[in-house]
Computed example of a mutant assay.
Amino acid sequence: MTTDGLPQQTRIGRTALRVNDIEEMTGFYRDIVGLDVLHHSDTSSVLGVEDTPLLILAREEDERQRHSSAAGLFHNAFRVPSREALGDALARIREHWELSGASDHDVSEALYLTDPEDNGIEIYRDRPREDWPRNGDGSVRMGTYPLDLEALEGAAAGDAGLPAGTDIGHVHLEVSSLEAFQNFYVDTVGFEVQVDDPGAVFVSAGGYHHHIGANTWNQRSQPVSGRGLSWFEVLLPDTEALDGVQARITDSQYPVIETEDDGIAVTGPDEIEVRFRTET
Rank of each mutant, 00 (worst) to 15 (best):
A58H: 12
S103M: 13
F78T: 07
V201N: 03
V46H: 01
A91T: 15
Q182S: 13
R94T: 13
T114Y: 13
G5R: 05
S225V: 09
G154R: 07
D42F: 06
T267A: 15
D148T: 04
P269Q: 01
E258Y: 12
R141L: 14
L54Y: 09
N218L: 15
D131F: 01
I168K: 03
H75G: 09
D196T: 03
R141P: 00
G13W: 01
D42L: 12
E23H: 13
N119P: 11
D62I: 04
D131T: 14
M25Y: 05
G87H: 01
G190I: 08
L54E: 11
L162W: 06
A205V: 00
L229P: 12
S103A: 15
D88I: 07
L147Q: 09
A16L: 08
E192G: 06
Y29E: 06
D131M: 09
I12N: 00
A180L: 07
E61C: 10
A71K: 03
H96P: 03
S68Q: 14
P7D: 09
W132K: 07
R30L: 04
F181K: 00
L229N: 08
L57A: 05
L242T: 04
S252V: 04
H75C: 06
L162Y: 10
P146K: 02
R94P: 10
A156I: 07
N215E: 00
E117S: 05
G206E: 06
R18Y: 10
R14F: 01
N218S: 14
E95D: 15
S44P: 00
V49F: 04
L99S: 06
M142L: 02
G207Y: 04
P133S: 11
H96T: 10
D51V: 04
